[in-house]
Design a protein around this nucleic acid. Structure first.
Lengths: 185, 185
DNA sequence: GCTCACATGTAATCCGTTACATGATTCT
DNA sequence: AGAATCATGTAACGGATTACATGTGAGC
């Protein structure tokens, strides 16, 4: 079985991104928030995929600038489709330092606990803004190609950020409501 | 700076779990869904933390069974508190194969797309059930020690699963509503 | 007697990021 | 002329999982 990142690459090539650089750029504005990839993975993986006969690369320099463009082979198409259709377990991993700190935050004074929630909130707000900024582009691409899934996942991402932001707000209200009134706050 | 996993260990020791085995057990029923850790990390990290003077271990065998129990040193307490209070960026990473597949699912027939959503939904339902099963224990521990944060993060986890389950449901309705009516479905 | 929970650890391996190195082209 | 973008790659490192190896104690 191929690595998940290999499938990301196959999928991005099917979407029309053909160089390592383009694949990385698209990942950064689309799947990054639920599946990231770096050059250190992409270029070696492209090489492996070519050796395995799932993609073919051809030199397509633009002027004197080197440029290697990839396409899916029939075997590559098949591997991608097989992965998409295969039922079975889906890797789901979350690493969230904000929640982790909050988990241990009973030893902190209330104001520090609230500040932690603020920092966490701000972080998700930042990511949300990033996603909202991409939305028009995703919307246009959706119309252009008649592909709705990427737009839907972006909208999921925004709703997901909203969910966490809402939780932070709600919890902050709850914590401050319980606390005795303090001067100056 | 220590690794995040080092802080998990320090935090768990402060919560009263003293052996590597106990730390791992508690991680598995509490932080696992937003910060996992394996024996392969925990035991070597305990050794490093002891060498760094943040924890002290003493042999407390139960019968002939070896058992090494750890406590925080003052330096360990301080390192933990410093991390909890330090503002700054919070690591947030998500790897979600369900969303990734859905992102590329425009090439699938509608029924396969819907099935993917089902699989994803089922997975989150399974995790939700796990969390709900732990809830009574977390509730009891919360009362016993007067620590509410662990319970709140568990409740966040359940709400988070519900959020994704709800998204799957909503999207499935949307996709099937758009589709032309089919015999037998 | 068997199985499960308690308990500790290491080695191989995988996955992924970061930093570095290099150079061309396009836009301002 | 300089900055940003396009473009390709590797090496070092770090973080984490998996599999293995070993053994005790408690309950059925």
């Amino acid at each position: 079985m191929l690595s998940k990142t290999a499938y990301v690459i196959l999928g991005m090539i099917r979407m029309g991104k053909r160089t390592g650089y383009e694949i990385k750029s698209l990942v950064d504005i689309s799947t990054r928030h639920f599946w990231a990839a770096s050059y250190g993975q992409i270029y070696p993986e492209l090489k492996r995929l070519e050796e395995a006969g799932l993609v073919t690369g051809t030199e397509e320099p633009s002027g004197a600038r080197q440029r290697r463009a990839f396409e899916l082979t029939p075997a590559g198409e098949e591997a991608l489709d097989e992965w998409l259709r295969s039922g079975g377990s889906l890797v789901t991993e979350l690493r969230h330092e904000g929640l982790l700190r909050f988990f241990f935050s009973d030893w902190l004074p209330l104001e520090d606990q609230v500040e932690l929630l603020h920092t966490m909130r701000a972080e998700h707000q930042r990511i949300r803004a990033e996603m909202v900024a991409i939305h028009p582009t995703a919307d246009a691409m959706s119309d252009e190609h008649g592909r709705r899934a990427p737009l839907l996942t972006l909208e999921f991402g925004i709703a997901y950020q909203d969910f966490i932001i809402g939780w932070c707000d709600q919890l902050e209200r709850r914590l401050t409501a319980e606390a005795p009134a303090r001067a100056g706050s």
